[in-house]
Design a protein around this nucleic acid. Sequence first.
DNA 1: GGCCTTATAATCGCGTTGACTATAACTGGA
DNA 2: TCCAGTTATAGTCAACGCGATTATAAGGCC
Lengths: 318, 318
Amino acid sequence: MDQAKGPRKGRVIGKTNDVNADLIAVVVAVNDAGPCVLTIEEGAALPSGPFELAHRSLQSGLRAWVELQTGQPLGYIEQLYTFADRDRIGANERVISISYLALTREEDAGASGRRSWASWYDYFPWEDHRSGRPPMLEELWPRLIEWADGADDAATRFDRRRRAAVAFGLDDRAWNEELTLQRYELLYEAALVEEAKRGGDSAILAPVPGRSMSADHRRILATAIARLRSKIKYRPVVFELMPPLFTLLQLQRTVEALSGRLINKPNFRRLIEQQELVEKTGATTAETGGRPAQLYRFHHAILDERPVAGTKLPLARA
Amino acid sequence: MDQAKGPRKGRVIGKTNDVNADLIAVVVAVNDAGPCVLTIEEGAALPSGPFELAHRSLQSGLRAWVELQTGQPLGYIEQLYTFADRDRIGANERVISISYLALTREEDAGASGRRSWASWYDYFPWEDHRSGRPPMLEELWPRLIEWADGADDAATRFDRRRRAAVAFGLDDRAWNEELTLQRYELLYEAALVEEAKRGGDSAILAPVPGRSMSADHRRILATAIARLRSKIKYRPVVFELMPPLFTLLQLQRTVEALSGRLINKPNFRRLIEQQELVEKTGATTAETGGRPAQLYRFHHAILDERPVAGTKLPLARA
DNA sequence: GGCCTTATAATCGCGTTGACTATAACTGGA
DNA sequence: TCCAGTTATAGTCAACGCGATTATAAGGCC
């Protein structure tokens, strides 16, 4: 800091502090196959593009890029995080990345160009606990131990073991579905994901299962998953992912797909109904065999009266 | 969007999309007078400065600017929001503002330069409900009604009334301390704060009590207050604002200062203790008259084991 | 008609927590 | 020295939330 003093007058003339601002979108939808993310380049990258003078706002710039690259119009949008301390710091140029989370219904499958929907769990196989603890975690654990024990001093070894145990729910610790980002970062630090090796560093270990993405897009996806898993617990954002009419079980399956864990059915119904988040339409559907189910729609008016106190979900603690 | 197709190759050569990135800090501390924010220019602005090539990261850039302008070193930092769709869109230049929330202990009062601490409630007098509902709200209400009834169609009038009632807890609705931003935005929309008149628009109405700031800094402060009021309920961030040793009442007063409402004392103690967030030091203090109080310290180890499940606070609902 | 599947209703019990009361320990003033 | 005021700390009680479980209804399919 060799600047002249002064709050905003201190900008040195002639020296440019210009940066490029990139907009990156994590567009999420849920279908029968599970939670999906909108990608380009056959699943290798997220839709993104530079923020330009023509854009009225960050959000409209994002919408423009996503629609151009994938044909997908966006509804609900929420800012995720702004990064700048990335590796790609060029000589005299810096890039700021502003990432967004978008929720949509995967309609408009106008097959425009190189868009494709990919399952979350292709990138993070260890995150799906709907069928119980994924077996691959058993193979992951010794590799984390190996990394932890590779530290020089005992304190670091202990700390690494503890962090791994907390993040992955080991040693009688409960699995916490919101730690998606911490888990990915731990694997990155342990050089167990492909992205960690791009710097030419430690090219020995084979990465763990799970598809990688270009740049830090997989990390951004992990951020989005963590944010969404947290948010569905206190805001009624799930409905952005639902069709206009749905059964309570469909709603439950959507929440389960997002959170990666199963929910107790009666409790889920009770909570949804007593919060007046949905209203009956009277219509029923006879699909999927069994007794026909009531079709519900989202009770929009509740958003007006309760702008904050949102959805509580019975995601069991232990 | 008249760009050539392509995800990142579509950048038009010769046309620059460069922007300036500003870093803005909301630095919060709590003292006997209540919750404070670190300001420059005698309370008229928040510390800020451009993100420069010399900065290693956004956070380190922010720290540098705050320390240069106020002499205050920062501890806990968290990103708030990134703005771009602001009024000041110059001819061929755009500014992106990345705002941060910082928590500190107001030590190091090295009186360096133009720094000064100002109470939150100088800027938002309607936000402090520790002594009951502020009387000024009674004067505010008719002005909001006046604004609501000034709309052209009945639907808008009804909607404005509802929004005002929800935000300010009227018509038997409970006061919600987390709606700080919504309240400020409502007052802005109703042209009841000074900032709303800077566009030359509707310079008739006198603004409601409460100090304004330059640019949109007061809005950023509102964002920070809302975020902090929400966060203290589920993460143990309060301790960033506490001295190393403190009594439970001091801790309670700090939470009350932030949330702007009073807390039931026995319940607060029970919750804090049973969560093992603090540990006794054995020492006591005889200040403030009455029976001497135990001095506690923050139980740091709990952060390791419970990275997520944080503080619950008994902030009464109704 | 029996068996599958799913929908829907109802109950039980524990833990959380809001509201309240009681007692302890110290200061300062009459 | 005693009393009043202040704060600390412990304990109680009831209502509610919510996890877990069971029972019943209503359709399809063989």
